[in-house]
Amino acid sequence: MSDNHEAPNGAPVSARLGIWAFLATELLLFGALFTAYAQFRITHAELFHQEHLKLNRVLGALNTLVLLTSSLTIAIGIAAIRRGLQKLLKVCLSLTLALACGFLFIKYLEWSHDFHMGWFPRTNLFFGLYFMMTGLHGLHVLAGMGVMIWLLYKAQRGSFSAEYNTPVEITGLYWHFVDLVWIYLFPLLYLIG
């Protein structure tokens, strides 16, 4: 285990271990919300059924597609830089960023519709959970976008190569996690009444 003892900061083993530990933290962060969801779904089954019909399934599904595609683009980006293809990495990062923007834009459309209809976090438990969960998820998307802008800036300066691409790789892991959370949120909130 002590193989990269003298290695500089950001060595692959430590970085990978670090991001997995971080994702474990994230899992429990969302885990608490999922627990609240489970509890209220049981105690307020009728409410959850009625309210979930109000959400726009088409936009939700579209967003799932958008986010899944963005996971694919960043995966391609990682594969590209491992082969030293800097240009492809930049294309993929830009695409991922664009898709993330698209995701947030659709989310914005949904939320403004909700507000317009008078559905707020305080409306009832379902909307409370809906706004908390999608809101927290949205913050994670924003944070991921921030990191990707920084990656793009570094990539522009040619910092990444086939030998050194740890930041891209761990950002990819994070992005897949954000994607995964949405994959749970979508059916729980939009589909299952």
Binding site: P121, R122, L125
Partner: peptide, 11 residues
């Protein structure tokens, strides 16, 4: 925001 997760009055 007035979310009522912990407030019995709001369920």
């Amino acid at each position: 925001f007035g979310i009522g997760f912990f407030d019995p009055a709001k369920g």
